[in-house]
């Protein structure tokens, strides 16, 4: 299975370069923190309101942070044309995407976990009671963001105005993720049991649809 062995090698490369500099992680964490604080100034929430709106704001912050974080994903491969050497080396170009999207999911999840205590304190939200469910929603949501984001960052890296283009392409596409994960997160905080099963299944469907599309069409994204 050279797809998986290639993916593993590439993933370790992505993780190694990131944890050597920790550029992406620190920037993203700080960015989410800033956004969360600014939100609280903009709406000055009471406890009740913040339970209702907090998760939406959290996911919005995650979405914006992700669209920034995914920016360099393929852009940094262009510096030394390393994308070409990867394409020469791997047996299936999908492994390049797979490694990148797993790495991005992990980075995103890590920043979310770092942010969660701050979020719980600032917005006075009970995070712990349903923590395993929250973790599931965060994982599936981040996975969906990373799949679509990795694909689109490969597109935007080849266009002009790249930095502006990625959020413009990505954010409308991620509407379903935002809608569902924010709603499910609210239902977790308010202890409404009905929504979460269906919502989590829906997030799973989103991930599967886009992963399949990426698997089918990924190699066309990279060719010259």
């Amino acid at each position: 299975m050279s797809l998986f062995s290639n993916t593993a090698v590439l993933l370790s490369k992505e993780l190694r370069t990131e944890f050597r500099s920790r550029e992406l992680l620190t920037t993203t964490v700080v960015f989410i923190l800033v956004v969360l604080i600014l939100f609280s100034f903009a709406i000055s929430p009471t406890t009740e309101e913040s339970r209702e709106f907090g998760p939406g704001l959290l996911w919005l912050a995650i979405l914006f942070a992700a669209s920034l974080m995914l920016q360099p994903c393929f852009l940094r491969e262009q510096n030394n044309d390393t994308l070409s050497s990867l394409r020469l080396a791997v047996s299936d170009p999908f492994s390049i995407f797979l490694a990148k999207l797993i790495a991005n999911t992990l980075f995103l999840l890590l920043t979310e976990l770092i942010m969660l205590p701050f979020f719980a304190i600032f917005y006075n939200v009970p995070v712990l009671p349903e923590f395993h469910w929250l973790l599931l929603v965060l994982s599936l949501g981040s996975l969906g963001i990373s799949i679509a984001g990795t694909a689109l960052s490969a597109i935007s890296a080849q266009a002009r105005m790249r930095e502006l283009l990625l959020p413009l392409l990505l954010l409308p596409l991620l509407t379903p993720v935002l809608v569902v994960s924010a709603t499910v997160t609210v239902s977790l905080f308010e202890r409404v049991p009905i929504v979460k099963g269906k919502g989590i299944a829906f997030l799973g469907v989103f991930d599967v649809v886009f992963l399949t599309a990426l698997w089918l069409f990924g190699e066309y994204l990279l060719e010259e």
């Binding site: 679509a148 694909a151 597109i155 080849q158 379903p176 809608v179 269906k198 829906f202 069409f217 994204l221």
Partner: peptide, 29 residues
């Protein structure tokens, strides 16, 4: 050629997204 290919791929992603957008909003919003 690049424009055609990249936009075709984005078009495919966008169209796949349409039912997801519709149902997510219809069911949760």
């Amino acid at each position: 050629d690049r424009r055609a290919m990249l936009s075709a791929l984005f078009g495919i992603f966008a169209f796949l997204d349409v039912p997801l957008v519709f149902f997510s909003i219809r069911w949760w919003r």
